[in-house]
Amino acid sequence: MSVGIVDYEAGNLKSVETALLALGARIVVADRPEVLLKADRLIFPGVGDAAAAMRVLKARGLDQAIVQFVNSGRPVLGICLGSQVVLDASEENGAVCLGLVAGIARRFAPDSGLKIPHMGWNQVEPTADHYLFSAIPPGASFYFVHSYYPQPQDSAAVIGCTDYGVRFTAALSQGNLAAVQFHPEKSGRYGLQMLQNFLQCRA
């Protein structure tokens, strides 16, 4: 089984790669549609600007390839920016996104008195029974670095929530697509467990 990691120059893929290698996964750097579409499962990471990410995805034809991959029913995991780009749009520079899950990415209110980005470890409460949370205690902490958060239109897509001034969606899922706002690859043993859960989920 091969795991494709979408490479579109949006931040550092290295940490996702090393975590998956530590778990014994066979990884493929998916920087072209034909490579991406051959993978058995797909991880869609990323940090940075949603609008810039969409520009690069489109320029490489990866946007259509990701949509095609999701529609094929194979498992997909979005990480950080990946959990925002799967939505319809983002408030970040008015980005139009992939539209795989109805909703938008919102910015934390700058007048909340809270520091932005939301950076550090915070607890994630599962709100649905989902394979990603197998063998992970409810309220386990994960590492976050972000200024925008996903807000799915349909609450049925929400599978985990976190509090930072507002209660926001930290994990979402729709069919074979799951996505998390935090960084499982940098979240210690429970983060590795979550990646393992993804590698082992039924296709």
Partner: peptide, 8 residues
């Protein structure tokens, strides 16, 4: 270090 530890 990056290969062996999984915190930032």
């Amino acid at each position: 270090v990056a290969r062996q530890i999984f915190v930032p």
